[in-house]
Amino acid sequence: MPYEPPTPPTNLPTEIVNTLNESSPEHLRDVASYAEAVAEHKERQARLEEADDANVEERPDDLPDDVPAKATITIKEINDNRYYYWQWRDGEKIRSQYKGPVSPDD
């Protein structure tokens, strides 16, 4: 009984199937590893965007135009002085923008 090659998924484009069929086992393993990593990355991005969309509230009146609506206010202490900053996630980074000093009444 001869060994039969695997049948590709029907939704996979012919060009990709042909390229994979022409590739070495080493390249195929690299492609498989990379494809898995890309799939995980895209799924994570979709989850983050979905969570961001679900958590966005109405835009506060005092929010500057260049600060996203999902930003929150945080307090930073610098040289014994306290300041308000808008803070939000931008991809893998946390961004901040100065809002103003914390008054003693706050």
Rank of each mutant, 00 (worst) to 15 (best):
Pro68Leu: 07
Asn18Arg: 15
Pro9Leu: 12
Ile73Gln: 00
Pro104Leu: 09
Ser33Val: 01
Ile75Gly: 06
Ile16Trp: 15
Glu92Arg: 11
Ile75Ser: 02
His41Tyr: 14
Asp66Ser: 13
Glu26Asn: 06
Tyr34Gly: 03
Val31Trp: 03
Glu58Val: 08
Ala35Pro: 01
Tyr83Met: 12
Glu77Pro: 00
Thr74Cys: 08
Thr74Ser: 03
Ala32Met: 09
Glu57Ile: 05
Arg95His: 08
Arg89Ala: 03
Asp80Phe: 00
Lys70Gln: 10
Asp62Arg: 11
Lys42Leu: 15
Tyr84Asp: 05
Gln45Ser: 11
Val38Arg: 07
Glu26Lys: 00
Glu15Ala: 12
Ile75Glu: 11
Gly100Ile: 14
Thr74Ile: 01
Gly100Gln: 11
Pro60Met: 06
Arg95Ala: 05
Trp86His: 06
Pro101Trp: 12
Thr14Lys: 13
Leu48His: 00
Pro104Cys: 10
Arg29Gln: 02
Thr14Ile: 14
Lys99Pro: 02
Glu50Lys: 02
Thr74Val: 09
Ile75Val: 05
Asp61Thr: 15
Glu26Val: 04
Tyr98Leu: 10
Leu48Asn: 03
Pro104Gln: 09
Asp66Phe: 09
Asn18Trp: 10
Ala69Glu: 11
Glu26Tyr: 02
Glu50Leu: 01
Glu58Leu: 07
Asn79Ser: 09
Ala32Gly: 08
Pro25Gln: 06
Glu26Asp: 13
Ala71Ile: 00
Asp80Trp: 00
Asn18His: 11
Pro13Tyr: 09
Pro64Tyr: 12
Ile75Met: 04
Ala51Thr: 04
Asn79Pro: 05
Val31Arg: 04
Leu20Ser: 03
Tyr83Ile: 00
Gly91Glu: 13
Asp30Leu: 06
Ser103Arg: 15
Lys93Ser: 11
Tyr83Lys: 01
Ala32Arg: 09
Asp61His: 11
Leu63Cys: 15
Asp106Thr: 14
Pro101Lys: 13
Ser96Ile: 14
Gly91Leu: 11
Arg82Ile: 05
Glu36Thr: 03
Pro9Arg: 12
Thr74Ala: 02
Asn21Tyr: 10
Leu20Asn: 04
Ser103Pro: 00
Ala54His: 03
Trp88Met: 10
Lys99Met: 13
Pro104Thr: 12
Leu20Tyr: 03
Asp52Leu: 03
Glu15Cys: 01
Tyr85Gly: 04
Glu22Ser: 04
Leu63Thr: 07
Lys99Trp: 14
Leu28Glu: 02
Ser24Gly: 04
Pro8Glu: 13
Asp30Arg: 05
Val67Glu: 03
Gly91Lys: 13
Ala51Glu: 05
Lys70Ser: 13
Asp65Ile: 14
Arg82Thr: 12
Ser96Cys: 13
Val102Lys: 10
Glu50Cys: 01
Asp66Ile: 08
Thr10Tyr: 11
Ala69Val: 06
Gln87Tyr: 02
Asn55Arg: 08
Val102Thr: 12
Pro101His: 14
Leu48Arg: 08
Tyr83Cys: 04
Asn21Gly: 08
Ala51Asp: 00
Tyr34Val: 01
Val17Ile: 15
Gly91Trp: 07
Asp62His: 14
Trp88His: 12
Trp86Val: 03
Arg82Gln: 04
